[in-house]
Amino acid sequence: MITVFGIFLLSLLVITALAIVQTRNLFVAVMLAAIFSLLMAANFFILDAADVALTEAAVGAGVTTVILLSALALTAEREKRSGSIRWISVAVVAVTVLILIYATFDKPALGDPDAPVHQHVAPWYLEKTPVFMDIPNVVTAVLASFRGYDTLGEVFVVFVAMVGVLFVLGGDGGRSGPITTPDPGLRHHLIPKVVGRLLLPFIILFGLYVQFHGEYGPGGGFQAGAIIATGLILHALLEGEQAALRSVPAGAMQALVVAGASLYGGVGVACMLLGGSFLDYSVLHPDPVTGRQIGIIAIELGVGMAVCGALLSIFHAFAAREH
């Protein structure tokens, strides 16, 4: 059954991808991209990758669509026709695709226990996670501890992405310059306003649950940051730009990113000061297992803060340009 589901969803995914490439209307492309994200999340879920699926859900369900629409408001709706077809590029792409398809013939079958990926470090992670960390979610253990350096790099990528967007869009959070049109948001729409205000606390609460439950179930900093950012973006949509910036100022969002990245790096430095190596959490507590748990919770918090702040900053940078 799992194969049928997987093949069906993958076919829909390919069709959607072709439609995105083919369409000239950018609004339609944004909507199809939302569909692509939904199908992708369902696919990940069918393949038992709940953490990845939750990330796709948290980012794709709200934030991506909102930010793409904000970007679309700054540009034209229809893609300009490019000139003649570049045959050399087409040839290069076609040859690359053929080589890649040929390369897949050597790949092991789905779920093959003898596949190299299941023989390399994965068994060691599975075996050692209960011994070293004593937490049920191996994904979190790998992400936050075994592969802590990679995740630190990702947090800095998020940080750099925010800095880049702010540079390009001149993101002063709408503070400088008179705002000509006060943005009413959706305040005149009663039903979204009531439902949105009702759901907002639940979204934030769920985000916190995902943040601190990441050691036990699917979740962690990335997902929680995106969910909380979605909640605050919902607030901005409902109440308007200015009201949202009054409750969470642009400076606070940027400070959140810096604080999150510093918290992650700071945990690493603290480990060094206590005599371990960088991001070796076992020295944080007399009992190494507890120390590693403390370290994982701390750096997940840093990740969550950084992601939440960066997504909000990017959203407000786009929205400030709109008005």
Binding site: H189, I191, P192, V195, L199
Partner: peptide
């Protein structure tokens, strides 16, 4: 409960 709340809201937003 959440889907019963959000589904009609989304329909409303779309129709509007």
């Amino acid at each position: 409960i959440f889907m019963m709340l959000t589904g009609p809201t989304a329909s409303y937003a779309l129709a509007n």
